[in-house]
Structure formats: C-alpha cells, structure tokens
Design a protein around this nucleic acid. Structure first.
Lengths: 347, 347
DNA sequence: ATGAACTACTAAAACGTTTTCGTGTTGACA
DNA sequence: TGTCAACACGAAAACGTTTTAGTAGTTCAT
C-alpha cells in the first residue's frame, strides 16, 4: 500500500524546504529551473496530488455543492441532479446529496450537517412538510451565515435567494388550453395541497384557462391529493382518492395532473372503469419522465427540462460563489421554459 | 450576516485559551465547572459548530463516502443510493455522488477528484465502457492507496474488494423456470453484451434453466443489445434491435429481459405486432422499478432489493473504515436475495 | 571596494481543530 | 514550613497547504 506523499515528505526526500516544493509544483518563477524539474519529476513519479481537505481549510472554500432534495427515486429530481453534476463538474465542483424524504427534521439535519464547512453553497428543493409547517428558520439562518442557497421547483417566495422555476401558471394554462382545443368539455385537475407552491400555481393556471374560455370552474373537479408523509400504503391511498374523485365526477372528459404519478394512476383507474383513452377521456401530465414515455398509452406531458433546471441552478450558485462579496448583485429568478410533448393521451 | 464563530474568537471573547474552549465544549474534566458553563453558554448563544474541514484534516478522515454510478436517471441506482444515504446518515456519514455516464474517462476523473482526501471510501458500480475495455488500473490504484472500495451490481471479479451482488445466475434461472412452468415453449432472452457481468450471468442462468428442463437453447433467441455509449438515438436503436429480433424469432411465447427498459420496450413492440400479453407471449423483467409497476400491463419482475443493496454496501464500507487497519479481515461478498413479484405479464 | 539588484531559496504564519505536555496555584499533610 | 497532589488552565504541535516576508549568495555597476 503506497501512502500518498505530502509536500513534507517530498521536501525531506529532496532535501529542500516545503515552500520550495510547493512553489516548484506551481511553477513559481522564484524557483530555479533545475530544482523545479527535480521536484516535478519526483512528484510525477510518486503521483503526488495536493490534499483537498488542506486546500479547503486554507482557501475557506471546498469546491463542493450541497444538493438537498425531497426524494431521489423520482425521475424529475434525478434529471435535475444530472444537470447540476454536469455543470458543477465542468467548473471543478463536486456534488454532495442529501435527502429530506419530504421531512422537515431531516431537511434541518441535512442543512446543519453540511453547513459546517463541508460545502460552499446549497441547491435545494423544499420538503412538503416544511412547506406545510411554514417554518423556514433553518433556511434563513443558513443564508444569514453567508452560505448561499439556490432553490428550484419548490421554492419559497418569502425567502430572498436565487431561484430556478418554470412558469407554472402559464404552462398549466397552456396545457389545459390544449385539452380545450382538443374538444374537452369537462376538465378536471389532480393537484397537490395548496402549501406545495407548484400545486397551487398549477391549479391557478388551470382556472385561468377555464376562465379564459368562459368555462365555469367546478370545485368538485379540483382534486387536491392529501398525501400523508410517507404512509406505507401511500400508493393505495392515492388510488382510493382518485377513485372517489372519478365517481363524483362521472362526466370528466379531460384531466390535467400536476405530476406523472397522479396522471398515470388516474389513467389506470379510468381504464379500469371502462373508459378508453383518449377517446372518452384525455390526459395531460406535468413533468416529462420515463414513466410518461413508457406509459400505456404514452402520456402527453409538459416537459420541465429538468436537466436545464439543474444546469441553471448550478450556474447561479457557482456564479454567486465566485463573485464572492465583490458585487452583491441582487437575487435572480430564472424561469426555464416548458414544452408540451404530445403523445397518445390527447387527440 | 453572522459569521460562524471559531474556537479562537470564543477564546478571545471569554479571555481564555483556545484549548480551554475546546476542552470545555467536549466536557473534559480538566476544566472547572464554572468555566465550562460559561463557555457552553456562549457557544450555544452564538450557535457554535466545529468546522468540519478542520476536523477532517486533523483526524485524517472526512466521514463522507463517494458513490460513483454509471447513471442516476435510473430507478435501480436511485434506490441503491437511498439505501446508502440512509445507512450512511445514521452513522454520521455524508454521501457525495459522481456520475460516470457509462464512460471510462469520467469514471477515472471522478475517482481521481475524490481520492485526494475528499472521501474515506468508495461505493462503485462500474461503467460499461470500463467493463468493455477491461482497464481497471484506476480502481486497483485507488485501493492500493489505502482507499477501500465496495462494488455493487456491476462488479469486477479480478479486483479483490468487498462486493454486494444478487445471485444473478440462480435468480435468472428461477425466473425462466417460472416462464416454463407457466407453459412457455419457446423462451428468449434480451440481455446486454457479455462484458457487462450481470448480463453474462443472467444469460447463464437462462441457459441453465433451459438445460435443466431439457430444452435446447436456440442462440438466435439470445439477443445481446449493443448499445453505443450514449448515442443520441439510443432508444430508437434499442427498438430497432428488438424489432428485428422478434422478426427472426416469430414463435417466441416467453421473454426474459435483463432490465426494465428492455422488457418494456419489448412489450411495446410485441403489442404493436398484434400479440397480446400474457396470452400470446409472457414477460419477466429484471430489476423491479416504477416502470414495471406502472407498465401496461404491469410487469412481472424479479426484485433486486436495491435499497437493501445500498444499505449493505454502506455497511461493508463503513465497517471497514472504522475497523481501520486493526484486523484486516479478508473481503466479503454479500449476496442479497431476490424475489419474483408477480404481476400481469405472466400467467 | 562598496552597495544595489538579482537569484534561489527558507522560515513562519495561517486556516480551525484536538491533544500532549507543561505550569502555576491551591490545599493538605508531615 | 516545606513537600506533594490535585486542580485548572495554557502553550505548542500537528494535520497539509499557500503565501508573505525574509535571507544568504552572487553579479554588476560605480
């Protein structure tokens, strides 16, 4: 087992000082050519690599980003991570991930664990429980300690920081309009509880589309899924809620769902009730993932471009980190555009 | 913006020495009660947290694990990560992820970037390109530098290290046997190229099952998907290969696919060719993910218990890290068991 | 011959901890 | 009164870097 050489051992071995070694490796002009060569050759031979931790301590920056998301087993989030990773790596940054599992406490712990110098900044999508509690002190405190945060997807309006979102209202309006254009007369929405910002906004877009077409909104056609945080039978509960929803709304011929799972589950249930898609009832989902692509029939969705969101988030964060405190320009909110990808659940 | 207090500023503020502060906070009996209280109160007030980087440098351990996987937009891998995260967090470890994107070079870079002191050990699933090249020097070197590696799923036999796998041969045999028991007469397999260890092993299990039932293996019924590493049209290429496969094997009434995507894509194509599932042709996939659950019809799969694999991998790694060099017990290979979850693509 | 200006290097501090080894002040005991 | 523990604290080293501020030794012009 070869131990990693340090500057000190190289120095001793070559009988020069540590500073000479350091400077030689960084090609300082203070050091003579022959010594430089000697040092570099030795370093190459023993495969010297500067110790990252020591550098972090010295420079007071770790070159790593902390990404905290509610759930990793989720196509949208992993796409975002891919985008973050790509951009971050290109800039020489690493990515450390924390999972909140939609839990407030775990979010706090994760923030805390990493805010002790392990990372330079956070990219965060807020846990549902946190949104429900409306307790954001941990986030505010982190920012207050000088650690920048970029929020994406699930953001908090009250917290001033960089944000990456899609225009949920406009996009949803567009999606519902598409349903209307395809001949739907009675359109429903399957959304989340209002405390989830995106659910609220998408519902607003839904209503705006209806209003815009002089269709009165039927509040019974608005389903807000109440998901217990991590009940074991989560998925059964979801099915049950959608089932009763369809029963109370038998005349639905179009459904807009705010995520893939809701859409696909609804489709499954509709099919079970004997409806054919898209003849009897049409569907559009939000967030384009593998599930939608491979669903039966393939689901028409609005694509959020998660990869791009990740890249943007990483870009915002790294730019702020590198700018340091020079110019503390104000916070940006980047809106990445969306696209409806038409597949077989719409006419 | 409150700056994080250090021991030094606390010491100055309270007019004691740095060592006193450190000891007081760690409840050393060397320090008098009143001083301890004074220090603790102050620390609590200013929310003091020891700087992780400094600790890492001092202790020569970072308490973080590096996880390098080929692809994160993949249900199996994210499940494994969840398992790793859970176990790691419970033990006070963080997880830093690197994506190889199935590329040899990116794998090398990732290993290199993190091996400079950033992490204490690796959990790794090898990139396809690396397996194809059979160039494992970067992995061997990392281990040689004293950084332990745990491999999972895609492992390398030649490299001695801890491993977490499923019994691919036995499981595949079981799956194919199930197909046989359900009345399939002509069973095919959709696998990967042989250099992907799991593809090879699962193919072996397939053949063993046939042999065991005195069915001769038809090598035309064995499809080894040739995926260009990240061609843009990756998925189209896959469909095309499967399509010609079905054409050359018109009498297939059972298909065993080594992953979800292959299975689902094959089902889609079979359906397009007018076959009904499971009446005309039955399917079993490997790796139980959302895709299988929500496929139409819901796909019978063998579940790999990715979460458990992640937990096991983290456990092996952390145990080795904490044991340090005391007892260098030999490497373990943990085999996590599998289960066939029957859904609607088998009779 | 003197000093200035290079050249090529070294010493030491600093980043924030923990820990080992002192050290000065008490109090008790002979 | 002198000696010795016990007590409460401090100084300094160490982890591996980078960087600032020297410092010898040489060269060159005056």
């Amino acid at each position: 087992m070869k131990q990693k050489p340090t500057l000190k051992v190289i120095a001793k071995e070559l009988d020069v000082s540590v500073s000479t070694v350091s400077k030689a490796l960084r090609d300082s002009k203070e050091i003579g050519e022959k010594t430089k060569e000697r040092v570099k050759a030795f370093a190459r031979l023993y495969n010297y690599r500067p110790n990252n931790i020591a550098l972090s301590l010295k420079n007071k920056k770790t070159k790593t980003l902390g990404v905290i998301i509610p759930e990793i087993v989720h196509h949208f989030f992993t796409t975002v991570i891919s985008g973050i990773e790509k951009f971050a790596n290109e800039q020489g940054y690493n990515v450390i991930v924390g999972l909140s599992n939609e839990s407030f406490d775990k979010e706090v712990i994760n923030l805390d664990m990493l805010a002790n110098g392990s990372i330079d900044g956070f990219i965060l999508s807020v846990a549902k429980e946190t949104l429900a509690k409306e307790d954001f002190h941990h986030i505010a405190e982190t920012i207050d300690q000088g650690i920048p945060i970029v929020m994406f997807d699930r953001v908090i309006d009250e917290i001033p920081c960089d944000k990456v979102i899609v225009d949920d209202v406009a996009t949803s309006k567009k999606a519902v309009q598409q349903l209307i254009n395809s001949g739907c007369k009675k359109i429903g929405i399957i959304s989340t509880m209002d405390y989830v910002s995106v659910g609220k906004l998408r519902t607003r877009g839904y209503m705006e589309a209806l209003n815009h077409n002089d269709i009165s909104v039927d509040f019974n056609a608005i389903l807000k899924i109440d998901d217990e945080f991590h009940a074991a039978n989560e998925h059964e509960a979801l099915e049950k809620q959608i089932q009763t929803y369809f029963k109370t709304n038998p005349d639905l011929d179009g459904v807009f769902a705010v995520n893939e799972i809701y859409a696909i589950t609804a489709m499954k249930i509709a099919r079970k009730m004997g409806k054919s898609i898209p003849e009897d009832i049409q569907f559009i989902g939000f967030t384009d993932g593998v599930l939608s692509q491979h669903a039966y029939p393939p689901l028409t969705t609005v694509s959020q471009h998660g990869f791009e969101m990740g890249e943007e988030a990483a870009r915002l964060l790294i730019e702020r980190l590198e700018k340091q405190d020079e110019e503390t320009e104000s916070y940006q909110t980047v809106v990445v555009n969306t696209a409806i990808v038409e597949r077989d659940t719409t006419k």
